[in-house]
Design a protein around this nucleic acid. Structure first.
Lengths: 303, 303
DNA sequence: ATCAACCTATCTGTAATTCAGATATAAACT
DNA sequence: AGTTTATATCTGAATTACAGATAGGTTGAT
């Protein structure tokens, strides 16, 4: 019935203003184009061309339907191109799990590059709770993960450091801790700590020695941010999400007595051995490893 | 070659998880679906289904290509639906020319209604210079116009009042006129008038007795707005575009001594006799005429 | 007006395709 | 093991698509 080539005949004829020219360009006989378009008109029950003159000209209906026909053609083209890409081993979909709190601004150029290099690969970025990245990888829901480095990974996981993330301790500007020139452990234990992570008991390789005995957990870092701003306690949060509110004076940075207050935590790319990375995943991993370290410094616009 | 029905077979089989079920639903033989999908796989050079078990299951490639196939099907469906709509006399495209300065907020509900009633009609809204609306209609570039009422329209034009637009005289807040409790004609003649309209000499039916001998014209009302705010003169502008800047005190409303300062100008719907309105255009005209008058009162949110 | 060049619609026979039915075979379930 | 239901493949028939030829019309130049 409705053959895709018929739509191509319609579009070509409209563009060239001639059935014969369209037929020549398609390597078919003129009669083929003529009947193809005639059948299209029968199916659609509208006149697409006005044939009263030497060359056919689009009717109003034909002009209105032309974009639709082009859309069908484009869809078919994309179907074929994507299939071609996948038949050569490129995966059709890549899911990257980036732990909440890791900023994606250092990755923007890389992502732009990805979108042009792998136009037919749909990219999915999920930002799960920190404890969930490994689970997503193991479950096969994601192929590649970015997470704050931890002491040990379960067997079957591959990892490599690719950058770092700056975490800063903050409170609301009017919080008692904000007035101290130097904050000691004993001071912090007096107030509630807010942790951007759900499921406190989650088995994770990272050290979970909280500084305060009173801890609240929330899955969304933004929620933690709001709670901190409302004076519910203090938190160690990625610089990228608090930079604005530090600047406006809404939040105050704490000054640790016992260590550098700016905590630089390594960021690891993580993947599993079992589910081998496809061409696109491999490409992204390599680009991540090649990333210059200074793109991870926040606050400067990515050039 | 690539028949649209084949894509439907693919999508149906993927959805139902069975070639036989898909065949039943399409009213075809099982073998037809089987070979159709096999041919699709040959064309695309990828395996779409894994046939190792009793029921076929999508491969990774099949899952990635399924949305594309759906897209093609949707495109075809839309093509047919639009054609059907047009074969029943509904135009495929409607262009409405709304004179610059007339707010479209009173029309939002109407437009929403239009988009659901005429899903297959693409709507184009152009906001030309006031003097150009009639030209667009005459040229056939637009089918329906909304413009500030004028004394007479050229022959061949139909018009009917549908609402009104409030125009207010303003200056910058620090302009000499802003200090006067009552502004007389003589005062206004001392300062420059800014008119949101290009081509001063344009033959138009509206009264062109400017109050000031010094007049500047600019096509874009927003440009006029900026000039007024910068103290270049005074202007009579639609309330909808100056409301915000009146509220912030950036601009000041003038208080006429000789008439009501708030000038209510009628808004006419205009169309030509020669180019008959289609079903959608007719619908829009009727809805415009039925519009309750109070939607034209600005400042209140449209419910 | 006449003519040449070019366009489109339609007809005809042929080639290609699509499809239904039949058959073989494999998987899941009893 | 037997039953049911699924898919792949084969075959012949029906449909469809197509090239080539023909007829009729339009355009523009002579």
């Amino acid at each position: 019935m409705a053959n895709i080539e018929h739509f191509r005949a319609f579009v070509l004829a409209a563009d060239l203003g001639s059935f014969s020219a369209a037929a020549r360009q398609m390597g078919k006989a003129q009669s083929a184009v003529s009947t193809a378009i005639a059948n299209l008109e029968i199916d659609a029950d509208v006149q697409l061309f006005d044939r009263s003159s030497r060359n056919p000209v689009l009717t109003e209906a034909g002009a209105a339907l032309l974009p639709n026909a082009r859309g069908i053609l484009l869809g078919n083209q994309e179907f074929l191109a994507r299939a071609m890409s996948m038949s050569q081993g490129v995966e059709g979909h890549l899911c990257v799990a980036i732990e909440q709190g890791i900023s994606i601004t250092p990755l923007l150029d890389l992502l732009r590059d990805f979108s042009s290099t792998f136009a037919h690969v749909s990219l999915e970025i999920v930002t799960p709770d920190p404890t969930d990245v490994a689970a997503l990888l193991k479950r096969g829901r994601a192929e590649l993960g970015l997470m704050i480095e931890q002491e040990g990974y379960p067997t079957g996981f591959q990892f490599r450091g690719v950058g770092y993330s700056r975490t800063v301790p903050v409170t609301a500007h009017d919080h008692p801790l904000a007035d101290l020139a130097q904050v000691r452990h004993a001071d912090m234990r007096k107030y509630r700590e807010l942790v951007p992570q759900s499921r406190p008991g989650a088995q994770t390789g990272r050290s979970d020695r909280r500084k305060s005995p009173s801890v609240w957990y929330a899955e969304n870092p933004m929620l933690v941010l709001d709670l901190v701003a409302q004076g519910f306690g203090w938190a160690e949060l990625p610089y990228s999400i608090i930079a604005d509110r530090l600047r406006t004076g809404d939040l105050a940075q704490l000054n640790y007595a016992f260590q550098q207050s700016d905590i630089l935590q390594g960021v690891d790319a993580v993947w599993t051995e079992q589910r081998a990375l496809g061409v696109a995943g491999q490409w992204m991993l390599n680009k991540l490893l090649e990333l210059p370290q200074d793109v991870w410094r926040e606050g400067q616009p990515v050039s």
